[in-house]
Structure formats: structure tokens, C-alpha cells
Amino acid sequence: MSELVKLHYDVDGNDFAAAGEASMKIKKELRNLGFPQDIIRRIAIAVYEGEINMVIHADGGTADVSVGLDEIDITLADKGPGIPDVEKAMQKGWSTASEEVRSAGFGAGMGLPNMKKNTDEMEIETEVGVGTTIHMKVYVA
């Protein structure tokens, strides 16, 4: 698949209230590239949830987006604690968010399900103590 554009962002893990910057930048880029609103919305939601997760559960990470002719590939990578039970983590309502994070409204356990719902493919590679990498694809053709 030929790639048109590659985007890379570092996600700072220090301030969860400020999270969302990478998703907002990616959204702007995709809009400049002229993608349909529905595609942009789905990607914005998926990247936002992944970005927030990297901030609140993994002390930050990186977001890479590669825009191709027929699909948009998103890779979110962190060196956080990893996810011990991915099946459980994917369930709506499952969350290990701290009290502090919950007081800001996070911890509904809806982030990973939202990512799944809004993408055409999603794959989680994770190892406890090493980190988590999430690959997502959205078809555009």
C-alpha cells in the first residue's frame, strides 16, 4: 500500500487533564487532507481514547499515523505496565483507574471498547512490565 503521509507525536504522560493534544493535531491534519467527516470522527475518537490510556495507565507514549490510499494505520506505543488480561480490559466497564483519575471523569472502562467500535481492525500487543502497542486500521477506500 502506498503511503501518502506519516505523522508522529509524543504523548506526555504527566498531565492527564491536558491529554488530547495528539488527537486534536491528527484530526486537523486529516481534515486538511480532505477525508470525510465520518472517517475523521472515528479516528479522532480512537486516537483520543488510546492517547488518554497512555497518559493515565502508562506514563505517556507515542502515536504514529500513516495515511495510505485505502487505509489509515494508527500505532500507539508505550513502555507502561502492560495489560495482564486483554480480554477483561476489552470489556465495557472494566477499569483499573486510580481515584485521582476517576475524579476527572475517567475510568468508565469504555475507552478500549470505543477504540474497537470505531476502527475496522484493532490488535493489542502487550507484555506485563514491558509495555503495550495497539495497532488500529480504518479503511478509507
Binding site: A17, A18, A19, G20, M24, K27, R41, I45, A104, G105
Partner: peptide, 15 residues
């Protein structure tokens, strides 16, 4: 009732 700066990101992303 959320009032931290994250509400701006949510508003932008959802338009």
C-alpha cells in the same frame, strides 16, 4: 460538571 481542560479536547474531537 467536568471542568478540566480535557473538555476542550472532547468538544473539538466531536465537533
Amino acid at each position: 460538571i467536568l471542568n478540566n481542560r480535557n473538555i476542550a479536547a472532547v468538544a473539538v474531537l466531536i465537533e
